[in-house]
Design a binder for these strands. Sequence first.
DNA 1: CAGTGAGCGAGCTTCCGCTTGACTT
Length: 900
Amino acid sequence: MAHKLVIVESPAKARTIGGYLGSGYVVESSIGHIRDLPNNAADTPAKIKDKPWGRLAIDVENGFEPYYVVPRDKKSHISKLKQLLKDADELFLATDEDREGEAIAWHLLDELKPKNIPVKRMVFHEITKAAIQEAAANPRELDMDLVEAQETRRLLDRLYGYEVSPVLWRKVMSGLSAGRVQSVATRLVVDKEKERMAFRAASYWDLEGTFDAGSKHDQRMFPAKLHTVDGTRVATGSNFGQDGQLKAGRSGKADVVHLDQRRAEALASALADTSYDVRSVESKPYRRSPYAPFRTTTLQQEASRKLGMSSSVTMSVAQRLYENGFITYMRTDSTTLSGNAIAAARSQVSELYGSEYLPDAPRTYASKVKNAQEAHEAIRPAGDSFRTPAQTGLTGDQFRLYELIWMRTVASQMKDAVGQSVTIRLGGAAASGEDVVFSASGRVITFHGFLKAYVEGTDDNAAKDDQETRLPNLAEGDPVSAASLSANGHETKPPARYTEATLIKELEDRQIGRPSTYASIISTILNRGYVYKKGTALVPAWIAFSVTRLLTEHFERLIDYEFTASMETVLDDIARGEKDRVTELTEFYYGSERLQGLQPLVTGLGDIDARELATFPVGSAEDGIDLRVGKYGPYLEGPDDGSGTRVRANVPDDLPPDELTVDKAKELLANPAGEEIELGTHPESGLPVVAKNGRFGPYVTEVLPEDAPKKDKPRTGSLFKSMSLDTITLDDAVKLLALPRVVGADPESGEEITAQNGRYGPYLKKGTDSRSLTSEDQIFGISLDEALKIYSQPKHRGRAAAAPPLKELGNDPVSGQPVVVKAGRFGEYVTDGEYNATLRKDDSVEAITLERAAELLAERRAKGPAKKAAKKGAKKTAAKKTAKKTAAKKTAAKKTARKS
DNA sequence: CAGTGAGCGAGCTTCCGCTTGACTT
């Protein structure tokens, strides 16, 4: 039977809407985007692979034509949609009403190719029966200008990410990434750390006292702080700048009095016998309105403050609540509640708190988000009447998050909190002649309103909205005495580091990122190693300083904090049909008279000095200390003493950049050995033996006395793979230091045969003739006979025998040669004896067939015969391998260092 | 950043925004 096919983005939404539309409609979901630019070479269509722009999948030479593909995991879903479309007599594209949703609708149309049936665009902003039925009755056409705007966004992000990232691979480190969003997020964290590094603390003193209003007051004792001395304000933290100096006042000079310890204490003793009277009582009404209902970012912030959840945990708990029908959609930038939701919230207010807490008219909340697309409602309990947390039967994190959402939603429809704020000034005369004024502040809330249901958390130690401080009911002229008085020292604090939640807030304020990506932005900068977490604080790694420096020096416009906001302006113009995609992308990529293009910028970067980029002076030029970001992590270089070599020392990975002061750097340089483990004294040489981590992995070495001649080199030996810095003993070390071991002499030539470990693993050496060994244990265990046997065989055969094929597949249809799978230095590969082809990411030894192997070999053959690799290339590869090993072992070494 | 000798398969990394299972333990 024929039906109308409705396609929405989310399966959970499809279920709900299916119920509202009834029979005659089949509601399915697209599960997000159904097509995209290919991710990597494996997904790129063969016909564009060899184009100069194949890697981008955008024909930058012809109108920025994109080449979209349906990702592997979406193919079966597309078939399912096509199947449903066969029996449909009408198609409703009901994806979200925002830029991405419009694009998904167009991709669906372009991919499903419905024939001879009407296609309508259907939109709604809330999932209620009335809204859905109205949307079905009033469809519109696809907005191609909006689709163009989305494509511009998508292509610009691809060009930015896939052109700039390779610059980082060449100049900083392989595997890094740059992008419109992540690079700015990283920059925010780096810039904050720079502020902290430049920060100079100021110290200031003040007087704090407890005052006594007398026995006729219920609230007798209350605290007050010194406010003025002879009519001049006493300096507090906010009077100091980041440089530790007093900020200038209106007159151009500081118009406050800065108390130091001596003066504060002198004043305190001069006030020992002072009596005070009330100089003024100022009372102001206090009023606070409820917070808007949750959107993604505010939910993430509050879940972090109140429940200690990371942004990704918050989102996955919310996802489960959404899928099970407890809350509305959790990725939204809207604070709007549907009419049904307002009614539900209001009825719960009167039910739970009484009608005196209910405002006469419903409250509405305008969006504070600048580029809000408002495709969804605010995040709220689902349904036309809300379940209280107890009624849900939820437990654990889901219960706590639901409770938070429920409370916030209900509170948003409650009355303001009102009360009084009171400031009391007390005056007195010091024995030394000064006139002093103390100040006390209080707050009394007379009607709690929404605060009864919900109080927002704070990131710093600001007073909470519902906090009350009661003061005695004093009048001007009343006498007051000081019960106690003390001089206290304070220091100004550097600006706080970002947390996940405050960074996300900052990004939202700057219109960077979208609700669906905030949590993953954090994951990206954590995974790339740009940032790490120390408690909840986000600390930048030194490599983030290098990357941010490269981008700010060479891609200034792209990493500008305003870049995304100005892009949004252009996209809006395109969406209104006032600008066009190709013109904008051409300007972005190739440049124009007023703007430098990305492409000429990237190709002209050969002369970036990678070494300089990774060098950061510590302290002043006189200190001569540099921090450098190397392949193996950050290290310090001491002053050049003219010897030609500078002292080097590792910087612990978890030392925050703002703690690397000149003193700390000198301390690290004084012990350049870094993390080393003392194993004992060598029984023969009498020298101390230590184990440490080096460029080529963990090793043991003797420590020469300080007065030893410089040309003396200590003996060293790499640990075997079977050993670790955690478990190495002095005995092991002595054995390793004794290498190479003399196995014996060749009876024919008399040449000595030795066994040792080298760059390519364990091997035997006889003069210039070397042979690999299969295991490290053979270095200690192999006998002369066995060694001679190895030497009796030609070099190559021994190696081939050592690596039998992992799998035999049969004969190649082209060459007729047997095809086998082997494990090689670069991973698993197939070979027909002449050509070798590495298995791709999606291939496996278990799953590979002869057909697939033949395909890979055919591709390989097309590239021509194997080139003889240059010596340089081979060396580089080997160094890379070692580097990986080093990194892997580094953590192990650290653990040991801590234990001891 | 410790320095130790071959002879030979490189291919991939990466963006931002939509959205869920599919995997394993």
